[in-house]
């Protein structure tokens, strides 16, 4: 399993958590369409998070958890191993 991918995704997870609340708008009361700008940021950010999670689930699912069966460094879940199993037992 590729180490850089693991650390990269840990960084993404921390980044996603860190900016869910827009700290850079602290004290700001700008309204856009009657709703605070910071709330719009949050709504957009949650949409982005969903997209990032979807990407992770598609390409990197299993990273850091599933046993390393091929040490060639390919990302798990990519290519032919996608959902080979795991459906109902």
């Amino acid at each position: 399993m590729s180490r850089p991918a693991l650390w990269g995704w840990i960084a993404v997870a921390i980044g996603l958590s860190a900016l869910t609340i827009p700290w850079f708008l602290w004290g700001d009361a700008t309204l856009v369409a009657g709703v605070p700008l910071w709330l719009w940021w949050h709504v957009g950010w949650m949409g982005l998070a969903s997209l990032v999670f979807w990407l992770f689930a598609r390409r990197f699912w299993g990273l850091g958890i599933e046993s390393d069966s091929d040490s060639s460094g390919g990302s798990p879940g990519s290519g032919s191993r996608v959902d080979a199993g795991g459906e109902r037992r």
């Binding site: 949650m46 949409g47 998070a49 969903s50 999670f53 979807w54 992770f56 689930a57 598609r58 699912w61 959902d83 199993g85 795991g86 459906e87």
Partner: peptide, 12 residues
Amino acid sequence: KKVLKRSFALWP
């Protein structure tokens, strides 16, 4: 696993 993946992406 597919169930978990989909739930994960839709959750936020």
